[in-house]
């Protein structure tokens, strides 16, 4: 029940990447550059196919405007401050909710990870609450918080709380017992033990939890906007669909996807940089 996300999102160590290590640096660089050829071809192919399908009427043009028009619309929107206002609203819900979840979940997770008794007492509650989909709480959140930013933040924070909590628990529980005992027998004060042993070994886990949660936060923020109508990108998508400007709807969906991709990329890059010393990040597997 616990670590399912980790499987899909753990940084990169994949078995079967062993041989890469032996390859010469120059060769791997050239190879990496060559890898971009099929990638770009893939993008080009799908764009061309969509464009042709729409222009020739294989896909009904009114529901599937040509890709070029969608991109044109997106370019037009980029110059328009309105889009950035919507993105800002979505991102504010994302950031505040995520921050709130982290502030609550990291200390609690570390506490539960450190104390067996506390972990056992709360286990059933956590195991029961965790699979409960956060979206089930949308109606409650609307009642209590209204349809504005607070509701969005609550939903985001609730959904993000669990991955961060679990990762923090595992991170602390996974501290190498030898290191912990060594520190203790050398008489390191608790604070130093925490700062030098527990925090560093839990950090990669917490980082993974934050990365998972960042994607979840975006989903929840958009859901709050789409379903309930809180201001933001999600509502803008609905508005353009309802008002019949389909091209703009696609442009906004495209912008949302790019936003999600950007967030994920930034998170991975930051994680790599901050946790360079950790074994899981030492060798970039490709």
């Amino acid at each position: 029940m616990r670590v399912a996300e980790k499987v899909t999102t753990a940084p990169s160590p994949q078995p079967g990447t062993g041989p890469v290590a032996g390859r010469s640096r120059e060769g791997s660089l050239r190879r990496r550059a060559l890898d971009w050829v099929p990638r770009l071809l893939g993008i080009a192919a799908i764009l061309v196919v969509l464009e042709v399908c729409s222009r020739t009427g294989v896909l009904p043009r009114e529901s599937f405007p040509p890709v070029s028009e969608i991109y044109g619309s997106l370019l037009g929107l980029v110059g328009d401050p309105g889009l950035w206002v919507e993105i800002g609203r979505t991102m504010r819900g994302w950031a505040v909710g995520l921050l709130l979840a982290a502030v609550l979940a990291v200390p609690l997770g570390m506490l539960l990870g450190a104390s067996r008794r506390a972990f056992q007492m709360s286990r059933l509650v956590i195991e029961f609450l965790r699979p409960v989909p956060s979206v089930a709480l949308i109606p409650l959140a609307v009642l209590v918080f209204g349809v504005g930013q607070d509701m969005k933040v609550f939903l985001v924070a609730f959904a993000c709380f669990w991955p961060i909590l679990f990762q923090s628990i595992y991170g602390v529980q996974d501290v190498d017992p030898v290191a912990r005992d060594t520190a203790r027998s050398y008489g390191l004060p608790p604070l130093a033990r925490f700062a030098r042993i527990i925090l560093p070994s839990a950090a990669p886990y917490i980082a993974t939890g934050l990365r998972i949660s960042s994607a979840i936060a975006l989903i929840l923020a958009l859901t709050a906007e789409l379903v309930v109508g809180a201001p933001g990108l999600g509502r803008a998508i609905v508005v353009s669909q309802v008002s019949g400007s389909i091209t703009q709807m696609y442009a906004l969906i495209l912008a949302t996807g790019l936003l999600g991709w950007l967030l994920n990329t930034v998170f991975i890059a930051v994680e790599r940089r901050l946790l360079r010393w950790h074994p899981s990040h030492r060798e970039v597997a490709l």
């Binding site: 789409l226 990108l233 998508i237 696609y250």
Partner: peptide, 25 residues
């Protein structure tokens, strides 16, 4: 490699954002 960019994009796209698209379709 060919599929990677498309997969990465679609994966990063929050699924609820596609609800209006699905309704249209």
């Amino acid at each position: 490699l060919t599929a990677e960019p498309v997969v990465e994009f679609l994966r990063a796209l929050p699924a609820p954002a596609l609800i209006p698209f699905a309704l249209l379709l």
